[in-house]
């Protein structure tokens, strides 16, 4: 699926959550906290989004704990950051224009 602009909320928040190395469980918790429990990422949604973003080069594999074979950590890439910033610009435009309502 094409996740180009506008980004889905899930993609937007996952990108934000991997600005520092983060693993699956950490991403879900961070997104949950950031949105006050509004955006909940299901395991399947997260798994699909991570794989799509890995193949697009928006995020990369940061580390893999070989011993437990668990807890892969993911990190935002330069492309990912550009995509995110482009989206923020679009959102800012929305907010700026929204002010005309008053």
């Amino acid at each position: 699926m094409d996740y180009s602009s506008p980004l889905t909320e899930a993609i937007f928040y996952i990108l934000l959550a991997v600005r520092a190395p983060n693993h699956g469980y950490g991403i879900i918790q961070d997104v949950n906290e950031m949105t006050g429990g509004r955006v909940v990422l299901g395991p399947g949604t997260l798994y699909g989004a991570i794989n799509t973003m890995l193949s697009k080069g928006w995020i990369c594999l940061f580390s893999e704990d070989k011993e437990s074979r668990k807890k892969k950590e993911y990190l935002l890439t330069k492309i990912g950051r550009e995509i995110f910033e482009k989206e923020v610009k679009r959102l800012n435009e929305l907010v700026e224009n929204a002010k005309k309502m008053d």
């Binding site: 699926m1 889905t8 909320e9 899930a10 909940v40 990422l41 299901g42 395991p43 399947g44 949604t45 699909g48 989004a49």
Partner: peptide
Amino acid sequence: YLRKKAAAGPFEMYTDAESKIIL
């Protein structure tokens, strides 16, 4: 087939419209 302990919280694999449509 997947399962999660009910005590560990709600369990829904796909939580947004986009990923549900993909499934």
